[in-house]
Design a protein around this nucleic acid. Sequence first.
DNA 1: TACCACTAATCC
DNA 2: GGATTAGTGGTA
Length: 232
Amino acid sequence: MSSREPDDPLDTPLIMIKDRIARSRYNLCHSLCPSGEHSVVSILCALEETVKPQRRRKKNKVEGRNNTSEVVMRKRKLLSEEQVSLLERSFGDEHKLETERKAKLASELGLDPHQVAVWFQNRRARWKNKKLEEEYSKLKTQHEDTIIEKYHLETEVLKMKEQLFEAEKKIERLLLEHKSDISSNNSPTSSIFSMEQPHFNLGEFGMEGQLMDDNMFFVADYQSNYVTLWDN
DNA sequence: TACCACTAATCC
DNA sequence: GGATTAGTGGTA
């Protein structure tokens, strides 16, 4: 009576075999990607992509004379206009084809039920491709519109930044002027905000400003009456 | 078993 | 060369 080796697969529980396969997968991936940057699944998928076998269809063969097999070209029968028309109408009603409907259609068309099934299969594929193309062109248009809008917004932001920069420069210049006025003991500038505080005309930026103290500048927006304060 | 993706074969 | 028909293998 011969006893099996302890490592005989037949003696190994299924769970242990699965565990070994998992560990082998991990070791393989680790050797391919030691940094662990790519997941086991992504590496396996990539490997499968690269070694994906091309499916080659065998040519139809028939038994020839003297038991030799001959390669024959498959004859493809084009459907008549009436057949296609009825199939199209049926497809328009419902893209799926139940067994009963298939048999009924096949008998009405004088076709093999398998031919009807294949026709529906191919028709669904054509329909899906068309939908994808439509969806693609819709998304492409949306994308192009978004790019144009982004460009306009970016241009606007640049203009506004320029305006802001100019306004800040002017404020700085006026503050300096104000300080030099004080030091030379001149009388205070008139203001719409207050008679005591210095007022700055920033009309070209759509606003006017007033110095509240050494660290605070008060700005009124003409158009929206919105009032802002910021630290100088 | 029906369905799908992919492909080959064929027609026009 | 595009459209159509049909074979093949994988999957739920």
